[in-house]
Design a protein around this nucleic acid. Structure first.
Lengths: 187, 187
DNA sequence: GGGATACGTTCAGAAAAATGACCGGTTGGA
DNA sequence: TCCAACCGGTCATTTTTCTGAACGTATCCC
């Protein structure tokens, strides 16, 4: 197999990670138990390491393969988002206010959700990989996951695989408020 | 560190994906432009494909490397966790109540956090990869990330890379309450 | 300047992966 | 029953990766 034609630049990614860790090629090579020549060639994209070889290299950082291949970067140094600053990404009887406007390259999405009485949302089909969790702040919610129904009120939480079909409904008199998180943020 | 991914069974994972797609070894080999022998040997873990080779193979499914290496989910069918059921994983003036008891194999961790007046927590050193986000429910918090300080109150949220040194402090008169999420759940 | 150390890169040979051809087994029609 | 098509697995050979020992350069200290 040839080393060109990368959609992800393995060499650059490795170098970025190594430098971030403050390691020289030789230092990483020693920790990982491989030769420095290998590190050099991989970073220069002169060779494409085997999966086992790459795992070996990453063990010196240490980093898992999934972390290595996780959709990288996108910076945004912004840390705090004011209550009024959260980005509304829904509308009508449902409000999904997302923490951060551009999640490109992120692996986590957090939202402040509000449902008016009777409002419903959810996904019927299994979609992308990921997990989601949430915690009810106020109100009463009916959660349906994979055919099972649950009723939640303030303080209750949920956690499930996003691929399962799921739906949310506000079954209280007033507004339903909750905080949710998903990973990855493929929406 | 999510060590489980270090022993990811590449062969089994490939086979699982291929079968799920309804493809024979040869059919996948043809679509991907590799030999069927390669597929066979990779699935049997008799060889460890190069990254470029694996990408080539996956192109026949099609699947990205990041998807291939994405954390295989552990199951745990439990979906709803009652308010009193969240697992306390801290103590003293701080309460971290985690959604779900065993996050082994998960890629998301959600917590309901409560800080008594004056309570402080955080990490000084850059630690494992990951991101964390949170939203304040009640009270006033001082957040310090990478040397910068922010004051947050109800409805405000934060989002940052876990590797940055960070600290949380309750600077209000009463209790501070927030919902947080991190990924991956390396605590 | 001289010596020591560290950096990333390069090269020939050893080790491992990828190929194309082939094997035995199974299925489904003529 | 025979044949054709497909399945996954195996083998010798070709191609690629990986190693260990070089190379050239830069830096610091005496």
């Amino acid at each position: 197999m040839n080393a060109r034609n990368f959609d992800l630049d393995v060499g650059a990614r490795l170098r970025e990670l190594r430098v971030r860790e403050g390691l020289s090629q030789r230092a990483l090579a020693k920790r990982a138990g491989v030769s420095n020549a290998t590190i050099s060639m991989v970073e220069a994209n002169r060779i494409s390491p085997s999966v086992s070889g790459l795992r070996q290299i990453l063990s010196g950082i240490p980093l898992s393969l999934s972390e290595f291949f996780a959709e990288a970067k996108g910076e945004a140094d912004k840390v705090v988002f004011r209550a009024g600053e959260l980005k509304e990404i829904a509308g009508g009887p449902i409000s999904f206010r997302q923490v951060g406007t551009n999640l490109e390259g992120r692996s986590l999405q957090m939202m402040h959700e509000r449902y008016q009485a009777g409002a419903v949302s959810g996904k019927a089909m299994l979609s992308h990989q990921g997990e989601e969790a949430g915690l009810v702040i106020r109100g009463r919610m009916l959660l349906e996951v994979d055919g099972s129904r649950y009723e939640l009120s303030a303080g209750d939480a949920y956690f499930f695989d996003s691929r399962k079909p799921h739906a949310f409904k506000n079954i209280g008199e007033g507004e339903l408020e909750l905080v949710s998180a998903c990973t990855p943020p493929t929406f």
